[in-house]
Amino acid sequence: MKNPYEILGVKQSASDQEIKAAFKKLAKKHHPDLHPDDKAAEARFKEVSGAHEFLKDKERRRRFDAGEIDASGAEKQQQRYYRDYAGPSASGHAGQDGFASNEDLEEFFARAFGGGGMGAGSRRAAMKARGQDVTYSLRVPFRLAARGGVQKLQLPDGKTLNVTIPEGAEDRQTLRLKGQGGPGFNGGPNGEAYIELHIEPDAHFVRKDDNVHLEVPVTLKEAVLGAKIEVPTLTGAVSLSIPKGSNTGSKLRLKDRGIKNAKTGERGHLYVTLKVVLPEGEEPELAEFLEGWTPRHVQNPRKEMLS
């Protein structure tokens, strides 16, 4: 991801309120509901949402500002490992361990583990150390986290790890990759890699516990007369019956179309909230009908607001 401050068009010194205001303005401008079938707008909306999610996390923002992590949330590695990163300024492992030479390192081993008839070199050969544990952040698309799958993680040294994302993975969930950390010393085991997942917001779906919520626009005719329409789910489009006389805010449930709970194995539901939209172009017949129409049930939809 690009610099989140640049994406939202704010300075690094911006307050939380300024960041939130910038996000609302851009999200409203690029929301997919206002730009149907516009992939560029959808991509921009995701980018803006991702930047806001990144910066509203105070700890993640602090670490980014301090240069500890990059814009993807990945650690900026400061340490250097043993064999793979040995530099020319020090001999062998000694320089990497803070010793001026291998002789100094062997002297340290001699003092630490005593004589016992073993030479310093032999003692060092017998010394094994487990590799260092490392922590990474990995951004995962919402639908991949919901369905499960594999996401690539680019490491600081250029290597790539294929991380298996469990079905129903949650934001801030941590995965352990055994033996994928720092290399062991002198034949010791590698350390572990801990991957903290950061689930990206989706343009349409919103997760609440194991349930998923989705707002679906319907035409005036579909709302008044009822209809069968196709709606997206996490596993593909399905047919949904819209009852006659539906209104904006009407909520329908698609059973077991939500997130699978890792502990119980049960699935949540998909809740579809309807949003009635008027035709984009002129409809003279509709206007003429409404001008001559007297509702049987007179209502004031703003009554509660004015009381």
Rank of each mutant, 00 (worst) to 15 (best):
M1D: 04
E6W: 00
V10L: 08
K11I: 03
A14F: 10
D16T: 08
Q17W: 12
I19A: 04
I19F: 11
I19E: 05
F23M: 07
L26E: 06
A27F: 15
K29I: 14
P32N: 06
D33T: 15
L34R: 08
P36T: 00
P36I: 04
D38P: 03
A40I: 08
A40P: 00
K46F: 02
E47D: 05
S49W: 00
K56V: 07
E59C: 02
R61T: 06
R63I: 06
G67N: 09
D70Y: 08
D70Q: 07
A71H: 06
S72I: 00
S72A: 11
G73N: 07
K76C: 04
Q77K: 14
Y82K: 03
Y85W: 15
Y85C: 15
G87W: 15
P88C: 02
P88L: 12
A90T: 15
S91W: 06
G92E: 15
H93A: 14
H93F: 14
Q96F: 13
D97A: 12
N102E: 13
E103Y: 14
E106F: 13
A110R: 03
A112L: 08
M118E: 11
S122P: 01
R123T: 11
A129V: 10
L138E: 04
R139F: 03
R139H: 09
R139C: 02
L144S: 10
G148N: 07
L153N: 09
I165W: 00
E167I: 05
E167N: 01
D171Q: 04
Q173S: 12
L177I: 14
G179L: 11
Q180Y: 13
G182T: 06
F185S: 03
N186Y: 14
N186F: 15
G188F: 08
G188P: 08
E192P: 09
Y194F: 12
I199W: 00
H204Y: 12
K208C: 04
P217K: 01
V218R: 11
K244L: 08
L252Q: 06
L254S: 09
D256H: 14
I259H: 03
G265P: 13
R267D: 04
G268R: 03
G268K: 05
H269P: 03
H269R: 12
L270R: 00
Y271I: 02
Y271E: 05
V277E: 08
P279E: 03
E280T: 10
G281I: 10
G281S: 12
E283G: 00
E285K: 06
L290D: 02
E291A: 07
T294F: 04
R296W: 10
Q299L: 09
N300F: 11
S307K: 13
